[in-house]
Computed example of a mutant assay.
Amino acid sequence: MTETPDRVALITGASSGIGAVTARRFAEEGTAVVLAARNTEPLEAVAEECREHGVAAVAVPTDVTEPDAVDTVVETAVERFERLDVAVVNAGTGETRNVPLSELPREQFAAVTETNVHGAFYTTRAALPHLRERDGALVFVGSSKGKYPSTSTPVYAASKWWVRGFAASVAGRAGPDGVAVTVINPTGVPTAFGSDFRESTNAESLDPKATVGAGDVADAIVYAAGQEGATAVAELDLYRRDIHARF
């Protein structure tokens, strides 16, 4: 296990789903990882799986809605490895489907906004100075619902529209400094997403043979993080093949 790796990636929401698979993908290719999520035990389990590939992996329990906590995880990465090359803004949550806005609990609105919007801002703000030093990559996990209306989950959709607009605007500032900024927009992914606020998770409600997998999204993230030179993929859509037939 090396403490002077050639590349270091920070991943939020890394304890499960897309974040966990992404961490393993980076580890497989020799990238050291710093993993952030609220749930300590599964986060450490993912870190241990990454270490099995011979890379350094640091698990830092982090609530991305707390700016000081986000600053701490970024500082941990830089203090241990003296660099940060990639930041993956992945942590996110959603809302109960098809609830009239007049009945949607304010707590759900706050949770979505604070995690998906505030958390993305805090992570970007903390990581960007270090990414500039490395000509690094900033990768946001967006959603197809950030490009099309969602009558079933309007608050979640709005948060992902914000992420896309924020990412494009950050690219306008950081791109000239050498930072590659990319948004990955998948359709629904069969993970444990929804376990806190729905009767069934995406894994239970989506057919894994007919939709985008967490591995597909992780591969796209790793690709975006590896871009070099003067160009960058600004946005990468990963849609199930029948997505446009649904409109």
Rank of each mutant, 00 (worst) to 15 (best):
V212R: 04
V112Q: 02
R24M: 14
A245Q: 15
A77I: 14
V212S: 07
V55N: 01
G165W: 10
G19R: 00
A69E: 15
V217A: 07
G54Q: 06
D68Y: 08
H118R: 13
R241V: 15
D63H: 12
D219C: 00
R240T: 08
P154D: 09
V189Q: 03
P100H: 01
V170N: 05
E75A: 15
E235L: 01
Q108K: 11
D177I: 05
S143N: 03
L10T: 08
A57N: 03
T12Y: 09
A32Y: 12
E28N: 05
R173E: 15
A234D: 11
P186A: 13
I11E: 07
T201H: 06
S195E: 15
T93R: 08
A232H: 12
A126G: 06
F197V: 13
T72N: 13
D63T: 06
A210T: 12
H53C: 02
A203F: 02
T31K: 00
S16M: 09
V163G: 00
D242S: 15
L238S: 04
P61K: 02
L101H: 12
G19L: 09
C50Y: 05
A126M: 12
D219N: 05
G165N: 08
T191C: 10
V179T: 06
T123E: 09
A127G: 10
A20V: 13
L101T: 12
F109R: 03
T153Y: 02
G119K: 06
V139D: 01
T191V: 04
T191G: 06
R25G: 00
D6R: 11
F247S: 14
V73K: 10
P61G: 02
A230L: 12
G172T: 00
S102P: 03
A174F: 12
L104Q: 12
G175S: 11
S143F: 01
G226D: 04
P5Q: 08
E235C: 10
T231Q: 14
S152Q: 13
E95W: 09
D196C: 02
A56M: 00
E95G: 06
A59Y: 06
E204C: 01
A210N: 14
D242R: 11
V217M: 15
R25T: 03
V181I: 07
P186F: 06
I221N: 10
T124G: 13
F166W: 01
L138S: 06
T40N: 14
A203I: 02
A234I: 02
I184P: 04
Y122C: 09
D177M: 08
D85I: 03
G165S: 01
R80F: 03
L238M: 03
V55I: 11
F247Q: 11
F166D: 00
N185C: 05
T76W: 01
D135W: 08
T76G: 03
V112E: 08
E79W: 13
V34I: 09
G30H: 07
D85W: 00
E41Q: 07
E41K: 03
T4F: 05
A110V: 10
L10H: 01
I243F: 15
I184Q: 09
H130S: 08
G30T: 07
A192C: 00
A9Q: 14
V217G: 11
L101W: 00
E228L: 01
E75H: 09
V64A: 04
V112M: 09
L128R: 12
L238Q: 09
A174Y: 13
R164T: 14
D6I: 01
V60E: 14
R38S: 07
A158S: 11
R164L: 05
E107M: 05
